[in-house]
């Protein structure tokens, strides 16, 4: 058993979007010899999307206790509403605590998309002629979201999601909450990390460290 989790340290994050673009490359875009095939409005389908402040009328997003820009992606809830809503078990939680979608079971009812309080699931309805860049990559007409780069799980270089790897600022930290020695565990123990909409009881395994002010 493991409970994989991610932390974004917003002090270190400078909003360069390396993570978003690395995610697009890793999970969405189809690289071909003479071009790249990907949805239009590609940022819409990135599995980690920048949320830029300041918003009009100082809207607080998802009870986020700061006006600092952040990134939204699957919160990998321990109590995921999307999984509860799914009638066929297509949305499920692996034993690593990662919420995935088994496309073979997905009937396309979109209940998971609407059940997600964080609005992270997308569905691309256009056409893409080539297969996804990895077995867990985006496929049109199926709900899509962050998998913590599950295809890298058994990578010889260790399980490092593409966004974490791309961040040269060290703003993204990934690890196992069940391992008390992992950096994420240490950060969570420090108590500086917050989660989105704690009140919903979804228990996200995605944390944010707010800027020092």
């Amino acid at each position: 058993m493991a409970r994989m989790a991610m932390v974004i340290d917003l002090n270190k994050c400078v909003g360069c979007y390396a993570c978003t673009i690395a995610c697009i490359r890793e999970n969405i875009a189809r690289q071909k010899k003479n071009g790249v095939e990907m949805p239009d409005h590609i940022f819409q389908y990135a599995r980690t999307r920048p949320i830029d402040f300041p918003l009009e009328g100082s809207v607080r997003v998802l009870g986020f206790p700061s006006n600092t820009p952040f990134f939204i992606q699957c919160q990998q809830c321990e109590n995921p509403p999307c999984v509860a809503a799914c009638p066929t078990g297509a949305s499920f939680k692996t034993k690593d605590g990662v919420v995935l979608v088994d496309r073979n079971k997905c009937i396309g009812c979109r209940a998971c998309m609407i059940a997600c309080p964080y609005g992270v699931r997308t569905m691309y309805l256009g056409r893409l002629s080539s297969p996804p860049p990895n077995p867990y990559g985006l496929v049109p007409r199926y709900p899509d979201k962050c998998t913590f780069c599950y295809h890298r799980k058994n990578s010889p270089e260790g399980w490092v999601p593409a966004c974490v790897e791309a961040c040269a600022f060290g703003a993204r930290i990934f690890g196992d909450l069940d391992d008390p020695n992992s950096e994420v565990s240490r950060i969570i123990r420090n108590g500086n990390a917050v989660r989105l909409r704690e009140d919903l009881g979804t228990k996200p395994k995605f944390f944010y460290i707010l800027p020092n002010k």
């Binding site: 496309r103 297969p131 860049p133 077995p135 867990y136 990559g137």
Partner: peptide, 20 residues
Amino acid sequence: ELVPLYKKKPKKILRLEQLR
């Protein structure tokens, strides 16, 4: 653990395997 979550048509599975 790396079971493809996408295998609508067997042909595509093959391509994924090749890709890997």
